[in-house]
Structures are given as structure tokens and as C-alpha cells.
Design a protein around this nucleic acid. Structure first.
Length: 1026
RNA sequence: GGGUGAUUAGCUCAGUGGUAGAGCGCUUCGUUCACAUCGAAGAUGUCAGAAGUUCGAAUCUUCUAUCACCCA
């Protein structure tokens, strides 16, 4: 059965993958030698509802290369797969699909029913990305597929596992150690999903915005002299003011201002620091006064140098407010509409005024209860409110006014009009100063709505307390980050770590294991206990409330409050009712929030291996060997895994992190759906085969460099697979695979050609191993490409052709050698191109097992390279290339077999010629060789080493053209020789350069000079004749 | 504004101090039985610019320019 002309990737890939999988080839420990060292990799879990994009394809190709390589080397190998529950994304996908199907909304169906619905979605989606990873050839141990929510209380049949237990246990442990706490902090709030999100899930995008300038009048009509000076202290501008000028891009937040801050060094405002000024919005009769304070934050050179401080709605302001004891008044509700709750504005403003005058203080909860949104703006969307605020201030005349042609107005600025055209009059017309400005605006990366900094109650990990070991491990080299420079990113982030907000106001996720009950000691706040289960939580509460207490676990806080209402006739205030002498049945409810997805995926290395159980896998495979991941989740994931494994099990999660770059389109643009430049890896696999896609990605995986992907490149590597295929087809036609006993040990060869290729093979094996050990995937792939195509196919296959016509012993030896060399190609290429190599492996011999479990070779160049054979073949190749080149340039007809002459033939050359005459003649199209003293007229000369070959082609050769050809060659040689001579002529070179470099330079120069002499001789002869 | 990186053939990129490279593209030629998803031959470079270190710099240092990304 003759082989087809090409490899049919489409039909073969699934068949081969199935064979691997059904044979258990990817199982943990498969193909491991006894007592082998272990090699383990956890997959960066893709979103369960996601689908494979180019980044995944790249990431998983690299992992698969390493995993297959180690598995073939007989290491105890595990590639642990799984998916991530991806809280916000999965909830979004599910809700979107529910809406499309006309199903009831999340809120209509309620939490339990919704969760059931999301699980359905998870089960339905899961297959997509897993199937796609299989298409790519990923050799994960699928029998161990993990999920970050496996074993959750509401998980359906078949979704068991203990990841949930691990997550909850870690939360409880960390809580008990004081590493997790609850608090009111400013967080990024996504008004669409109505949840906190991490600052890493916020995209800052430069957008067209405005900067409004407003006057905050000083209290009691106070005035001061406002002076601006230049660097030398000369007065540039001076006027009497009764206000301080403030610029803002978000006027609606003025309602929550707690102060105006100026830099302590700012002389312009020094006299009014400590004074009160008025927020120029809201009902005139209740207008609030706020203090002017100093803080390092305001930049005196930016705007007016004075900044309004709205602690509850801006991160910088929040820091200033904390430093200065300025109250933070929350203005918006969870959907970022202006608050509609609480007491009327007049009352709220009165309280705030008392605070500003220092007459009273508020605790956190009291502050949060104060709604400073004026009655007419309550319930309004934040952007509508912005317009309303601007209008009200402008109407009242408190906007900073400038001439209509002020350049700060941007496009709106009127062109100054010449006086004769009425310009003088126009100049007097003042308009509000509203600058058009590009401003950085935060958007939710999922919801795409503007993120609102919001003061809310959240759970936090005290990251600062657990970051130490994570930093030390990388500093002292316990954990290696590649490429090195990504360490900086890692350090920078961890050294400036902020508390990690881990609560999310979602339903899909690990519900926080905290229960609330009234505090037996009284007070307005719920008392909370943290426990792994409800039963344990109630036990803890019982300790507080006494053995006779009865608890009723209610659905939420609302229900718990309702409970009181039923029991108490004269329900007046929350504080009073939560007393020990209250109702006998104590209402309890669980924290409705879920954990940040990264909290659970941070436990991925131990969680997938069965922790907290002391499993066999945990012993064998933890810490894992390598983590391969994209640079975009160094903070998200790598840093968190480091912190969490150290915090939980006191051990590094992995030895090495290989951080890879981004796959871009061929123009270097980031692939994005909105740009429409996304290359779908599945389409590419469909078109070119998985091997070609994989090889392309590997060959471009230069460490730390983005790769720009083009289809041409993939097609080129598809052709590479075909090339190998056809080399095997040639072998098959020449009986290489007939009745064959394939052997892993290199054959004993006597023929120079065979001895040479065996040595070359040994070299490439070392190159590939070295490259892979250094994570130089591109070096490994490119070296293999050059070897298989450039050495095996271009030269060895050609050299072998005459050998197949020789006697039986030589044919047998050549068959054995070619069989072995091709086997080595398959073995070494297998991690990169698993499908075509597995197929060839099967076609080329009867084997004991599949290639996926073949032994990776360990032979060394040191023992297999035959220097003499190598030199001889180099000489042969030089003769062939020189002849071919001369012939092509002189337009000698391709098919013409020409007689060849040679001068200066030494005994070594003679011997080399004799041994290789057949193949040189065949490949250079030479009829015969004859030694001579001088060449006849019209001979093309080809210098090779000490001898010069000549093709006497009288009549076929244009003398002038031959002269031109030789002169060109001469020019090149002389330039090279000149450089070498210059170097050797410099005494300092001989002194300072290493000896082998000097030697090499000398040898090179001699070789050049030999060629130069030969060419000069030929030229002299031609010129004589011409 | 801070940080990181890049700038090498027409394009995409390798190249950590010692003769400037690869793939793709381009030109010419070629259907002899491994392969036209091929073969042979060929052209194309102020290694962004400037200064420095060195016997020697694409490579190390400094500055400049341009671009990209990350963070604020």
C-alpha cells in the first residue's frame, strides 16, 4: 500500500487523537520510567463558557510541547486540565441567553432557580473549549478534568469534586488567621452588573470629556488677594477674589464634596487654608460649607491648583479624605443613579454642616445613611444629574467665565474678531469655561459601562500580610519567572499591593461562608460568624446566644429584618430591637455575596490535586513544574497563586513561570472582535491542520516578543509537514520500511553519507533539548525545520539515491540509516507536530507502541559525529553548490551533463571524489572528471579549497559574462579577506582576542586567499584569451 | 506622568562582543519516478540617528527620534 502524496490532516487528526485518548496515553504517569522525576503543569483554566482564541492556542501549544517532551523522556508527567467558573462572565452569558430565549429574568426566577440554570449553561458550554483543546492536540489527562466550582452545594449530578470545599476551607482558615476582614472601602463598582469588580477588570480608556471650572464662594463673603507669579517671583496676575476656583470632570460628585484641598506649598491659597467655602449647588438655603485643607495630592500646576475632595467617589480623593478625616458621602445607589433613600436633603445637609463645623462626628454607617443629593436630583441617572448640576451652577453665575475665544474652549472657541468687525464688543462676551479634554475613563471590561468608585461593604484579603513569601520566592530564585524582565512587573505589583477585594455581588460563585445574626451585646450592626457550614456557623452562634437560643436561618437580610417586625409590635429602631431580651427565635442569614473568581482560581494548583485531602497526586505533582501563561494575567493570577499557596500550604505553587506574549494579527494589531481581525484557531486548524498551526506558533515564540500571525506563514509550515511526509514516501518507495525492525539505537554505518547524517542527527537532538530546556521554543522549532528540510530532505535524501543502486550491503545499511534518521525526525518533531508524526510512525514500521510514548533519544554528538565524514560531506556539498551556481549563472542548459576538469587535486580530494563521485556527478550534472594542468579556452572555473574545478564549455559560455561572474565573486572574497587581514594585522587583536578566535580568523583568511588566487588565475587566463 | 520593550532585507522576525541570518515575498530557470504544498540559482542591508567603551559593537553605555504595550 503506497502512501498518499500528502497527509490528510482533516481525517487523521480526530482518529489519532481518539487513539491516544482511548489508550490512556495522556494519563498522569503514563510512559513514566520507574522512579522517574515528576513533571507537572496545570492548565490556566479557560472560562467554562469561553471558546478557544489564538492566545489559548498559543498558550496550550507551548504547554503541550513541554508535556509531550517530558512524557517521552519517561518522566512522571501530569498535565492537569480544567475550566474556571468565571463568575461575572458566565452569569452574563447565561443571562444573555435567557433573555434571548424569553426565559424569566434572574430576579424573577430567584437565586436557587437561577443557579440551577447557570449549571445547565456550564454543562452545555464546557464541551466547547475542551473539544477545541483536543482539536489542537492538547495531551491533558482529561480523566482529571477539574472545575473551580466542583462540589458546590447546588452542583448537579456529575459535578462532584471538592474544589468548593477547598475554597471554603481556605476562606475560613484565612478568616481565622485574621487575613480576611470585612470593611467599608472604596471599590470599583460596575453599575450594570451591580457588583464590585477588581481594578484589574477595569479598562481605562481615553475618552472625550469636559473639564468644568466652578467658583466655590468663600463663606461669609470673605475675600483674599489672588496672585500668580512666574518662576522669578514677578507678579503676572493679581485680583481680589471671594471664591476659590475648582475644576472637575465630574460635576455631579460635587454634591458629596467634603473639602477643598490645596498643596501646602501653594502660596496663592495660603491665606484661606482653614476657611470654609460653599459648594455652589443645591438649594440656596441649605447650601453646604466645606473646609479648605492642605494635602500633598493637589498639583499646584494643574488647573487652579485647588481640588475638590469627594471621598466616596474618587480613589485619590478617598486617600485625601482618609488622611484629613474628611467624611465620605455616598451619592449613588447600586445602579449608579443618584440616591433616593434616606431623609430629605434639608436634614441631611444640616447633619453634614454640623460635621463640617466640627460640632459632631459620624461613624461609618451614619455617614453612609446621609443622602446629600438634593431632592430634585434624587433618582436621576448620574449623567443626567451631571447636566443638571452644570446648568444650575451656570445659571447662578458661579461658573468661571472667560472670553469666547479662550483657547481652552477647544473647538467651541470663537475666532477672535478684529476690532473693525466688532471684535471689541465680542471680546466682552464671556462664556462658561468648559474645556474639551481627553480624559481617562474607567470602563468595566465585561459590561462596558463607566465604572463608579463606590463606598460599599466588602470582604478583603489583607494582601500585604501574605505577600512576603511570594516576593521572597522570586527574589531568591525559588521561583523563576521567564523572561526575566517580567519579574519587574511582578515585583512592582506585589510591592505596591492593595487590599484585595474578594466579594462580588453576584449569584454565580462560591457563596461567602459567613452568617449574620443580631449581636447579643446590642448595637446596630449584625454580628457575623465565619464557618465552613451552616451547622458549624449555628454552633458558633450558640456559644454567643446560649444553649437555649433558637435560630431560624432566613433567606436574606430583608427577611431577617422582617422577622423582627413580626415579633415586635412597636418596631422603632434597629439598634433597640437587637437586644438579648428581644425575640427568642434568632434570625440568621448568610452573606449573599460570592467570592471573586480569582480567589478560587488562585487555589488551582493545590485544588486540582485534591487538597485539602492528602492525595497521592498532591505528593507526586505539587509543587508543579511550570506555569505557562499570558503576560496579561501576571497580576490576576500568577501573583495570587503565589500568595495563596504560600498562605495556605506554605509552599510555592510552581518552580517556573513562563510568561508569553500576545498573538497579534499580521499588522501587529491586537486581535479583537470589534476590529474584526480575529483569526479563529479552529478555522486555521480546519484549513491547514493542527500541526501547521502549532508549528507556526512555536517557531514564532521568541521569549517576550509579541507574535504577528499571518496565514502565509502557517501555509509554509503546512508545507513543511508535507515535506517530511514525502521524504518518508521516498523512503517507503526505496524499501526502507519493508520488513523493518525499527531500532532506537543508531545503526552502525560505513558509508560516509550515512555516517555523516547520523552525526547531524545527534547534533540536532542536542540543539532541541537545549532549546526546550531553556524554553526557547522558537529555537527548537527553527532548528528542526532547518534540519529536516535543509539537511535531511535537501541533501541526505539526494545523497542516498545513488546508494540505493549499489550492492546489497550498502542498500541495507542505507535503508537502516534512513529509517533511523526519519524515526528521529518524527520523535523530535512529535512535541511540535504530534499528528503527522504519529501517523508516519504508524506507517513506517510495525511498532510496539505509539509515538506519543516513544523514547526520547539521549545519544550525543560527541560519540556519533564522525569529523572526517563531516568534512568530506562539506566538501562534496561545496563542489556541488559551486558547480550548480556557476552553471546557472552561465546559463548552461540544466539537463546537460558536462565533462569536468580539475587542477590542484590533492590525494585527500581525490579520495573524497572517488568515494562520492556518483552523487556529485548526479547532483551537479557532471559526466566525467579528468585531472589537468591547465584549462582550455572557454572554461568556467570553480575554486573549492586547494583545487579548482573547470567546466570546459567552449561556445556555450560568454567570456565577458564569465569575467563578470568571477569579478563579482572576487570582490566579495576580497572584502571578506580584507576584514580578516585588518584584524590579524592589528597587534592588539592577537593580544586580547581569545586564541580560538585568532586561529579561526587565520584559517578563514587562508581559505579566502586560496579562492582569491584561483579566481585571479582564471581571470588572467580569460583576459589573455578574450 | 511613570514603567517596559521595540527600531536589522520588500514583509514578519531571529541574532548577549568575533565573516549580518531565517521564513515569506520577488526574479530567472526547471514536469527525470519523494514532494509543484516542489527543486535549482539569484537580487536586496549606513543593523533608526549621534556619541562613547573595546583590538573588535547589530550586540555593552549614554543621549536623541519614532512606535508599541502596561500602569496611573
Amino acid at each position: 500500500m503506497a502512501m498518499d502524496k500528502t497527509f490528510d490532516a482533516k481525517s487523521a487528526e480526530t482518529r489519532i487523537y481518539d487513539a491516544w485518548e482511548t489508550s490512556g496515553a495522556f494519563r498522569a504517569g503514563a510512559n513514566a520510567k520507574p522512579n522517574a522525576e515528576s513533571f507537572s503543569v496545570v492548565i490556566p483554566p479557560p472560562n467554562v463558557t469561553g471558546s478557544l482564541h489564538m492566545g489559548h492556542a498559543f498558550n496550550n501549544t507551548l504547554q503541550d510541547i513541554l508535556v509531550r517532551w517530558h512524557r517521552m523522556r519517561g518522566h512522571d508527567t501530569l498535565w492537569q486540565p480544567g475550566t474556571d467558573h468565571a463568575g461575572i462572565a458566565t452569569q452574563m452569558v447565561t443571562e444573555r441567553e435567557m433573555a434571548a430565549n424569553g426565559e424569566p429574568s434572574r430576579r424573577d426566577m430567584g437565586r436557587d432557580a437561577f443557579l440551577e440554570r447557570v449549571w445547565q449553561q456550564k454543562i452545555k458550554s464546557r464541551g466547547t473549549i475542551i473539544g477545541q483543546l483536543k482539536r489542537l492536540g492538547a495531551s491533558c489527562d482529561w480523566s482529571r478534568e477539574a472545575f473551580t466550582m466542583s462540589g458546590a452545594p447546588n452542583a448537579p449530578e456529575g459535578e462532584d469534586g471538592n474544589f468548593h470545599d477547598a475554597v471554603i476551607r481556605v476562606f475560613v482558615d484565612m478568616y481565622d488567621k485574621g487575613l480576611i476582614y470585612r470593611g467599608k472601602r472604596l471599590v470599583n463598582w460596575d453599575p450594570h452588573f451591580e457588583t464590585a469588580i477588581s481594578d484589574l477588570e477595569v479598562e481605562n480608556v481615553e475618552t472625550n470629556g469636559h473639564m468644568w471650572h466652578f467658583k466655590y464662594p468663600l463663606a461669609g463673603g470673605r475675600t483674599y488677594t489672588y496672585v500668580e507669579k512666574d518662576e522669578d517671583g514677578n507678579v503676572l496676575f493679581e485680583e481680589e477674589r471671594d471664591y476659590i476656583s475648582i475644576a472637575t470632570t465630574r460635576p455631579e460628585t460635587m454634591l458629596g464634596d467634603g473639602a477643598v484641598a490645596v498643596h501646602p506649598s501653594d502660596e496663592r491659597y495660603a491665606t484661606i487654608v482653614g476657611a470654609l467655602c460653599e459648594i455652589p449647588v443645591g438649594p440656596k438655603e441649605h447650601r453646604r460649607l466645606i473646609p479648605i485643607i492642605t494635602d500633598e495630592y493637589p498639583d499646584p500646576d494643574f488647573g487652579s491648583g485647588a481640588v475638590k475632595i469627594t471621598g466616596a467617589h474618587d480613589f485619590n480623593d478617598y486617600a485625601v479624605a482618609k488622611r484629613g478625616g474628611i467624611p465620605c458621602y455616598r451619592l449613588m445607589d447600586t445602579s449608579a443613579r443618584m440616591r433616593g433613600d434616606g431623609a430629605p436633603y434639608a436634614e441631611a445637609a444640616e447633619i453634614a454642616m454640623a460635621v463640617a463645623r466640627g460640632e459632631r462626628t459620624l461613624d461609618e454607617a451614619e455617614t453612609d445613611a446621609v443622602n446629600l443629593v438634593p431632592d430634585d436630583l434624587r433618582g436621576m441617572d448620574r449623567f443626567e444629574a451631571r447636566r443638571a448640576v452644570v446648568d444650575q451652577i451656570t445659571e447662578e453665575g458661579l461658573a468661571v467665565m472667560v472670553p469666547g475665544h479662550d483657547p481652552r474652549l477647544g473647538k467651541k472657541a470663537a475666532k477672535p474678531v478684529a476690532p473693525e468687525e466688532g471684535g471689541e464688543a465680542r471680546a466682552e462676551e464671556l462664556v462658561p469655561l468648559v474645556e474639551e479634554k481627553l480624559i481617562m475613563q474607567p470602563f468595566g471590561d465585561r459590561s462596558k459601562v463607566v465604572i463608579e468608585p463606590m463606598l460599599t461593604d466588602q470582604w478583603f484579603v489583607d494582601a500585604e500580610a501574605v505577600v512576603g513569601p511570594a516576593l521572597d520566592a522570586v527574589r531568591d530564585g525559588t521561583v523563576q519567572i521567564l523572561p526575566e524582565r517580567d519579574k519587574k512587573v511582578y515585583f512592582h505589583w506585589l510591592e505596591n499591593i492593595e487590599p484585595w477585594c474578594i466579594s462580588r455581588q453576584l449569584w454565580w460563585g462560591h457563596q461567602i461562608p459567613v452568617w449574620y445574626a443580631p449581636n447579643p451585646a446590642g448595637g446596630t450592626d449584625w454580628h457575623h460568624v465565619c464557618a465552613a457550614t451552616e451547622v458549624e456557623a449555628l454552633e458558633k452562634l450558640r456559644v454567643l446566644w446560649g444553649d437555649d437560643a433558637e435560630f431560624r436561618v432566613l433567606q436574606d437580610e430583608q427577611a431577617a429584618l422582617e422577622h423582627f417586625r413580626v415579633y415586635l409590635d412597636n418596631w422603632t429602631d434597629e439598634g433597640a430591637i437587637r437586644q438579648a431580651q428581644g425575640p427568642k427565635t434568632i434570625p440568621v442569614f448568610r452573606d449573599p455575596d460570592v467570592l471573586d473568581t480569582w480567589f478560587s482560581s488562585g487555589l488551582w494548583p493545590i485544588g486540582t490535586l485534591g487538597w485539602p485531602e492528602e492525595t497521592e497526586e498532591l505528593k507526586r505533582y505539587f509543587p508543579t513544574s511550570v506555569l505557562i501563561t499570558g503576560f496579561d494575567i501576571i497580576f490576576f493570577w500568577v501573583a495570587r497563586m503565589m500568595m495563596m499557596q504560600y498562605a495556605v500550604v506554605g509552599e510555592r505553587p510552581f518552580d517556573t513561570v513562563y510568561v508569553h506574549a500576545l498573538v497579534r494579527d499580521e499588522k501587529g494589531k491586537k486581535m479583537s472582535k470589534s476590529l474584526g481581525n480575529v483569526l479563529d484557531p479552529l478555522d486555521l486548524i480546519e484549513e491547514y491542520g493542527a500541526d501547521a498551526v502549532r508549528f507556526t506558533l512555536s517557531s514564532m515564540a521568541a521569549m517576550g516578543r509579541d507574535l504577528k500571525l499571518s496565514k502565509d506563514r502557517i501555509a509554509g509550515y503546512r508545507n513543511f509537514g508535507t515535506k517530511l511526509w514525502n521524504a518518508c514516501r521516498f523512503a517507503e518507495m526505496n524499501g526502507v520500511f519493508e520488513n523493518r525492525t525499527a531500532t532506537a539505537t543508531p545503526p552502525e554505518a560505513t558509508e560516509t553519507v550515512n555516517r555523516w547524517i547520523i552525526g547531524e542527527t545527534a547534533r540536532i537532538r542536542e540543539t532541541v533539548d537545549e532549546a526546550l530546556a531553556a524554553y526557547r521554543f522558537d529555537d527548537a522549532a527553527n532548528a528542526l525545520y532547518r534540519f529536516v528540510w535543509g539537511v535531511v530532505c535537501d541533501w541526505y535524501v539526494e545523497f542516498s539515491k545513488p546508494l540505493f543502486d549499489k550492492d546489497e550491503a550498502i542498500v541495507a545499511e542505507t535503508r537502516a540509516t534512513m529509517g533511523w534518521v526519519l524515526d528521529q525526525c518524527m520523535v523530535l518533531l512529535h512535541p511540535f507536530m504530534p499528528f503527522v508524526t504519529e501517523e508516519l510512525w504508524d506507517l513506517s514500521a510495525k511498532r510496539d507502541g505509539m509515538l506519543v510514548h516513544a523514547d526520547w533519544p539521549e545519544y550525543r554528538a560527541e560519540t556519533l559525529v564522525d569529523t572526517a565524514a563531516e568534512q568530506e560531506m562539506r566538501w562534496v556539498i561545496a563542489v556541488i553548490e559551486g558547480t550548480r551556481s556557476a552553471r546557472a549563472q552561465m546559463r548552461v542548459p540544466v539537463g546537460l551533463y558536462a565533462p569536468m576538469l580539475v587542477t590542484g587535486f590533492g590525494p585527500d580530494e581525490q579520495a573524497a571524489w572517488d568515494r562520492n563521485a556518483d552523487l556529485i556527478k548526479r547532483l551537479a550534472r557532471i559526466e566525467s572528471l579528468e585531472e589537468t594542468e591547465s584549462f582550455p579556452r572557454g572554461t568556467i572555473t570553480i575554486p573549492v579549497g586547494t583545487s579548482t574545478f573547470g567546466l570546459p564549455l567552449e561556445g556555450l559560455v560568454d567570456i565577458a559574462e564569465e569575467i563578470a561572474r568571477l569579478e563579482k565573486a572576487l570582490g566579495k572574497l576580497e572584502k571578506e579577506a580584507g576584514g580578516l587581514r585588518g584584524r590579524l594585522g592589528n597587534p592588539k587583536f592577537a593580544e586580547s582576542a581569545p586564541e580560538d578566535v585568532v586561529e579561526e580568523t587565520k584559517t578563514n583568511l587562508v581559505a579566502r586567499e586560496e579562492d582569491i588566487a584561483a579566481i585571479k588565475a582564471a581571470l588572467a587566463r580569460l583576459q589573455e584569451l578574450g
